[in-house]
Amino acid sequence: MNENSFMALIHNAIGIMTPFLLAATGGLFTELAGMLNIALEGLMLIGAFFSVVFAATTGSIFLGILLGVLAAVLVSLLFGSISLYLKADIFICGLATNLLASGLTMVLAFQLYGNKGVIRFDNIPALPVLNLPFIQDLPVLGALLSGHNIMVYISWLILIIAAVVIYHTPFGQRIRGTGLGSPTITALGLNPTGYQLKAILISGLTCGLAGAVLTLNLAAFVPNITAGRGWIALVVIYLGNKTPLGILAASFVFGLADSVANFAQGAINIPADFFLAFPYIITVLAMVGYSIWKTHRVKV
């Protein structure tokens, strides 16, 4: 492997990590608010489907993303209301959301396009690629950090906003207080359920964006295109130790793993199914490694 292909590997990894990073950023809010949000996968799928469909019907990428995110937020509202106000088990509601997403997208795909397979859209403009001023002129960093599509930069921006909100605003502290089960929240006369719902809506928003990245990059919808990415995002949150910087690093690791697998598939002949199974296996190994590290740390 020469230097160029190594750079390309990292550059690809930064592109591939974007959906993980976006979904994990929203998932961080629900995690800090004390909820195990396994609906990330389904919310992402909703965002993926509706953003590409609306982008194709309106001819505008921006409107497509906006309406796709709106759809994901609406589904997260359904998910949040049922689990918080009807007091249903949040984990089972998460399963319900994932099932709803895969059923709804299939039914609508069949209804709108008469097709339950891959749906290609020809009239979708590509996501704009940005070259960062100043940074693009730097020797190594320029090649790595510049020249990505706009969603990559949006995901970084959202991560920064999330970090500020979580650590430096009353809202963020109340979310964390809710997750710690602190009685202070109720003692202050605040409503913890309201904060939990807001956290769920935030996860809907970022998962919607994460889904949009997947389909708008391809200009196509593939059934169950998320392929476990929502679950990986959940693992990313744990591996990142529930901090914004941590999830950035963990997303990059998964992005790099995917990028290496892509490269390996081109270079050596691996059956496609093994290649598809690779993210799942890596995720399990990463989780096991993390829990070993954690038990070890507790003992010391």
């Binding site: 359904l78 007091k87 509601c93 319900a96 709803l100």
Partner: peptide
């Protein structure tokens, strides 16, 4: 999925 949503709703 609707059944899933409501079946544990206390």
């Amino acid at each position: 999925s609707i059944i899933f949503y409501l079946v544990t709703a206390q």
